[in-house]
Computed example of a mutant assay.
Amino acid sequence: MEMEERFEDGMLDVGDGHTIYWRSQGNAQAPAIVILHGGPGGAMNPQWAGLLDAQQWRIVLFDQRGCGKSTPFGELRNNGLADLVGDIEALREHLGIGQWAVFGGSWGTTLALAYAAAHPSRCLGFLLRGIYLARGEDTDWFLWDVRRVYPDVHASFLDAIEQAAGRRPACAREVLEFSGVPLSRFDAASTALARAWRDYESTLSRVNHDTQAEESDARTEEESSRAAIAMALLERHYMADELPPPALLPAVPRFAHLPCQIVHGRFDMVCPVDQAKALADAWPRANLLIVDAAGHWTFDPGVAAAVREAGKRLRTEMGSAQPAA
């Protein structure tokens, strides 16, 4: 396949007052794959594209509503799962792509499954890392039950909420209830709580906490704070107001004929691995690889290596699929 390298980016008006930022790169003649970032509110990470062979894919990334370069920043109105599914479809149409593969991580896997259920004919296959089925028990684990493994980290998280809200949560529901107003103020206290939320999730994501292994971060202090606010604000919004979604596992038969590669860290403390096993069990064409001694972090060496290989396998399974205009 002769490679025509292309890099494009732009802003797409998706309605409801929202505009999303997108970028496309890689081989313009190859099948497209859209990358769905985590969070919600995590924004795109161009390093994800580096896990894919740019000669074999046309790689599309975008910032979901309310985060990254999408506008308005931090907007919660008209920002729900159905809205994001609609944005994926609007972006596909805008770029003139007939069908594409879907690569999602964490919350991005939730969104990938919801998109597949709504638009199975537009999908070629799936690469999913760190499955989050967004059931009540999955959210409760992240907000509360994980304290059985990380009691000290969870206590510090509750300390930050108590400092910002004046009340200490006694259950997962109260974590969401008490943090809502402080996070929406966009002031110094909001930033402090958002950073605590971000640090809590980051700690749970890694098995190896060696600072030498941290991914490079060239953001300014302001950019880092802005990213933390988007993550905490939108995660809290979705967990409190949008989840759980319609059950995702019963929808699998709509797209079970398509190939799927699943990568999940065995010691994932954000999204326990039973979620990946449940999805694989429901999907005959899914291949599940559990990475030992790895957690939720995309760039854990074991997880990153597994994702690279899974991307190659997916491309092989798709065979000679070509981009349809």
Score class of each variant (00 low, 15 high):
residue 66 G to E: 07
residue 143 L to H: 01
residue 219 R to C: 06
residue 180 G to V: 11
residue 306 A to V: 07
residue 171 C to S: 14
residue 8 E to L: 11
residue 322 Q to H: 14
residue 195 R to P: 02
residue 55 Q to F: 05
residue 188 A to M: 06
residue 20 I to E: 00
residue 49 A to S: 11
residue 284 P to I: 01
residue 94 H to K: 13
residue 252 V to F: 06
residue 142 F to Y: 15
residue 230 A to L: 00
residue 40 P to N: 04
residue 214 E to A: 15
residue 5 E to D: 10
residue 308 R to L: 12
residue 278 A to H: 08
residue 1 M to D: 15
residue 153 V to S: 08
residue 146 V to P: 06
residue 152 D to W: 13
residue 255 F to N: 00
residue 108 G to S: 03
residue 183 L to G: 06
residue 312 K to E: 14
residue 88 I to T: 03
residue 51 L to V: 05
residue 143 L to W: 04
residue 66 G to A: 09
residue 76 L to I: 05
residue 311 G to S: 04
residue 289 L to K: 14
residue 19 T to C: 15
residue 79 N to F: 00
residue 169 P to T: 06
residue 149 V to W: 11
residue 5 E to V: 15
residue 52 L to I: 12
residue 136 G to N: 13
residue 133 L to K: 12
residue 140 D to W: 09
residue 323 P to A: 09
residue 264 H to M: 08
residue 60 V to F: 04
residue 95 L to G: 01
residue 77 R to V: 03
residue 249 L to M: 03
residue 256 A to D: 06
residue 127 L to V: 10
residue 282 A to F: 02
residue 101 A to R: 02
residue 282 A to E: 00
residue 137 E to N: 15
residue 258 L to G: 05
residue 259 P to Y: 08
residue 301 P to T: 04
residue 28 A to S: 12
residue 57 W to A: 01
residue 61 L to N: 00
residue 238 Y to M: 06
residue 254 R to Q: 13
residue 195 R to Y: 10
residue 290 I to Q: 10
residue 118 A to H: 06
residue 16 D to Y: 06
residue 274 D to S: 09
residue 263 V to W: 00
residue 81 L to M: 10
residue 206 R to W: 11
residue 318 M to Y: 13
residue 183 L to E: 07
residue 264 H to N: 06
residue 177 E to D: 13
residue 131 I to L: 07
residue 187 D to G: 10
residue 76 L to Y: 06
residue 137 E to K: 07
residue 79 N to R: 01
residue 227 A to I: 11
residue 198 R to V: 04
residue 42 G to P: 05
residue 203 T to K: 10
residue 30 A to D: 07
residue 188 A to S: 10
residue 130 G to Y: 09
residue 136 G to F: 13
residue 172 A to P: 10
residue 200 Y to A: 02
residue 127 L to Y: 09
residue 71 T to F: 03
residue 107 W to A: 00
residue 309 E to N: 09
residue 197 W to H: 08
residue 249 L to Q: 13
residue 131 I to N: 01
residue 19 T to E: 12
residue 243 L to D: 02
residue 7 F to R: 14
residue 87 D to M: 00
residue 233 L to V: 09
residue 121 S to P: 08
residue 212 Q to F: 15
residue 250 P to V: 02
residue 113 L to S: 00
residue 109 T to Q: 01
residue 14 V to E: 00
residue 273 V to M: 04
residue 98 G to L: 08
residue 55 Q to T: 14
residue 116 A to D: 01
residue 125 G to V: 01
residue 123 C to Q: 05
residue 110 T to Q: 07
residue 8 E to F: 05
residue 228 A to Y: 08
residue 304 A to I: 01
residue 189 A to R: 15
residue 227 A to Y: 09
residue 1 M to V: 12
residue 201 E to C: 11
residue 124 L to F: 07
residue 65 R to N: 02
residue 127 L to H: 10
residue 283 W to P: 01
residue 9 D to N: 11
residue 101 A to I: 02
residue 189 A to F: 09
residue 160 A to Q: 08
residue 81 L to A: 11
residue 239 M to E: 12
residue 10 G to R: 04
residue 23 R to N: 15
residue 63 D to M: 04
residue 227 A to F: 07
residue 294 A to P: 01
